[in-house]
């Protein structure tokens, strides 16, 4: 199996507080991984550290993506290698339409973006994700409902088609129908050459997805890994067994 992401014993901090304390994780092409963990375990930190958000510091350890050491790369360089993150709270940008933004992002991947083809592609995707077409001409995320924002993240995922999709709490605050749409989008994206890392604290979104590996993140470390069955167990018993067990 071909390794895509390798996180090796990393320590990371933000605001002078160490959040990740020796986390390791390997994701191969074709796999879907899930990280489950309670609030404050370091779930959001992981995605930010992989994308080298300047607000976070990698103090120790190494992150390799598709053969590249990410340590000295900027966020946009990492994105261009093929890492995508769906944000829990995507930024609202006034004055730039969602369409124009995706067009700009697309133009960073390929030289000549055909505006008409892109428009058609996005209209199509919008339909599948039950997104109103007019959302594409609205300012990026501005005044979007929670559900619209999350769907818009999935729309971008499908339009940009990266090698690795990190989905940070993509299900939080969504109703059952929206969760179904989002997992449909993830299934549309997934194939044998890419990978998905779902970071979440609830398991609803996983019902419609084929999951290969599940990791339990407690206090900055993966304390237990298993297969999809682990999801059911956490749903039933919560994290307390793992918290006490450490």
């Amino acid at each position: 199996m071909e390794k895509l992401l390798e996180v090796k014993n990393i320590y990371a901090s933000t605001n002078q507080k160490t959040i990740l304390k020796g986390l390791s994780l390997t994701i191969n092409k074709g796999e879907t991984h899930v990280i489950l963990g309670p609030n404050g375990a370091g779930k959001t930190t992981l995605g930010n550290v992989i994308l080298n958000n300047p607000a976070y510091t990698l103090d120790k350890g190494k992150i390799t993506f598709d053969g590249h050491d990410l340590k000295n790369l900027t966020t946009d360089e990492i994105a261009k290698l093929g890492v995508f993150m769906s944000f829990q709270l995507p930024a609202e940008i006034a004055g730039i339409s969602t369409f124009n933004f995706i067009k700009t992002a697309k133009s960073k991947q390929q030289k000549n973006v055909n505006v008409f083809e892109l428009k058609e592609e996005l209209n199509n995707l919008a339909k599948q994700l039950q997104i109103k077409q007019e959302m594409l001409s609205r300012d990026l995320n501005l005044g979007f409902s929670g559900g619209e924002k999350k769907k818009n993240e999935i729309l971008q995922l499908l339009a940009l088609n990266p090698k690795l999709a990190i989905l940070d709490e993509t299900d939080s605050g969504l109703d059952v129908d929206a969760i179904k749409v989002v997992s449909k989008g993830i299934n549309l994206y997934k194939n044998n050459n890419n990978a998905v890392l779902i970071i979440t604290h609830n398991a609803k979104i996983l019902e419609n997805l084929k999951v290969d590996k599940v990791h339990i993140l407690i206090d900055g470390k993966i304390v237990h890994s298993g297969d999809a069955k682990l999801v059911k167990e956490i749903e039933k018993n919560g994290f307390s067994a793992y918290k006490e067990g450490k």
Partner: peptide
């Protein structure tokens, strides 16, 4: 955080700032 968001889609920091400023001026 807005800069980070835009950079995570492949825009350079300069491009991200310019996009936000253009949007502000739009």
């Amino acid at each position: 955080s807005a800069i980070f968001y835009l950079m995570s889609r492949g825009l350079s920091e300069d491009d991200a700032r310019a996009l936000i400023v253009r949007g502000f001026a739009n």
